[in-house]
């Protein structure tokens, strides 16, 4: 069983981890330095969708069990496979972009295969520890990451310039509110919450954890992108591959303190490892529940390796980022629609 705080920590990390990689760049490219407004808008929409879904949700059952009750074996398998595919698509981009980024900024001489192999081994070890351990480490580590983020934002104070977020509506209201709707995909990891319902004490805790998770995770994401917009003028802000790392690089408080990246890289790596272990474990659980298998642990290694193989399909990091963007746009409607449909059906069934 997961405690409420642990479930909240999982959701916070799941939401904001993408902000640590290439995600902010895609938001900036869409709406300019009004990206923070776009994310604020996505945050509000995601919160509304979550409230509607969780209010309609009945019973302490995960989505796959609900599908089984509502439509029998066939619907269970269809739903299970669909959820597994959405989660895999959500996750494979991380498994590719993270090692690529590590190679660029940390281990330039190491081979990508070696970095990926070490990363996957760490994910497998984490996933083997099980959901309780993953959740507990999330709960223990997130406050450390929070303090680090606070220090980071304070150290950036000399670089904030209000002129950088002007004109206030960036590329225009149409970009922010129409094409910008797609970046609600940041919150598509909320799907995890509906899969993890059976691990919570009751539905009320799921509701509270989800609300807190979106508020804190979404809030942190908006703050990160606002800090980036305040420190980097548009259109140059759309050029940097890993915006958060770029901000960490710019910190230079005279000769007193000038290299914040090691602190950042430490937190960054652990958060992404936690996120990845969680995903591999949850995908294994989804397969196990879908096909009524006795154990989920034997699935961890194959799933991690399959995800790794899929992640390595794009030839270059440019293709990887392009595909990631396309995947997030095509997969996110299902991440919200599937739980919403089952939530509505669960109420009718009850």
């Amino acid at each position: 069983m997961l405690r409420k705080k642990e479930l909240t920590s999982i959701i916070i990390n799941a939401i904001h981890t993408k902000m640590l990689l290439t995600y902010p760049r895609s938001v900036i490219l869409n709406s300019g330095n009004a990206a923070w407004i776009q994310l604020l808008y996505n945050f509000a929409v995601a919160l509304v969708i979550f409230f509607v879904t969780i209010t309609a949700y009945r019973g302490k059952r995960g989505l796959i069990e609900l599908a089984d009750i509502l439509g029998g074996k066939a619907l269970r398998i269809v739903t299970g496979v669909l959820i597994a595919v959405i989660l895999t698509l959500n996750f494979v981009s991380i498994i590719r972009i993270f090692p690529e980024t590590v190679k660029i900024v940390l281990l330039q001489d190491a081979r990508l295969e070696l970095i990926t192999a070490i990363f996957v081994i760490a994910i497998i070890i984490g996933a083997y520890a099980g959901i309780e351990s993953i959740a507990r480490v999330h709960y223990l580590f997130l406050p450390i990451a929070g303090v680090m983020l606070f220090v980071f934002l304070i150290m950036l104070l000399p670089y904030y310039d209000m002129d950088n977020i002007m004109p206030i509506f960036g590329n225009g209201a149409k970009s922010i509110f129409l094409s910008g709707f797609n970046s609600i995909s940041l919150f598509s990891d909320m799907l995890l919450l509906y899969v993890l319902v059976p691990y919570a004490q009751n539905l009320d805790e799921v509701k509270q954890s989800g609300t807190k998770g979106i508020l804190i995770g979404g809030g942190v994401s908006v703050i990160i992108i606002l800090a980036y917009c305040l420190t980097h003028p548009y259109p140059v802000s759309g050029e940097f591959m890993v915006p958060v790392y770029q901000m960490a690089r710019m910190i230079h408080l005279s000769s007193f303190f000038s290299r914040f990246e090691p602190f950042f890289q430490f937190v960054w790596t652990i958060l992404i490892l936690l996120y990845s272990s969680l995903y591999v474990y949850v995908i294994s659980c989804v397969w196990q529940t879908t096909f009524r298998l006795k154990y989920e642990k034997p699935l961890i290694i194959p799933i991690a390796l399959i995800c790794c193989e899929i992640a390595m399909l794009p030839e270059s990091v440019i293709n990887g980022i392009e595909i990631q963007h396309k995947i997030s746009i095509s997969a996110y409607p299902l991440s919200f629609a599937v739980p919403l449909v089952y939530a509505l059906l669960s109420g009718r069934r009850n």
Partner: peptide, 17 residues
């Protein structure tokens, strides 16, 4: 001295600017 930059706040969108 970036006077043009200071004028950015008088516009609503980057395209207008």
């Amino acid at each position: 001295l970036g006077f043009t930059r200071k004028a950015k706040r008088k516009f609503l969108t980057y395209h207008d600017f």
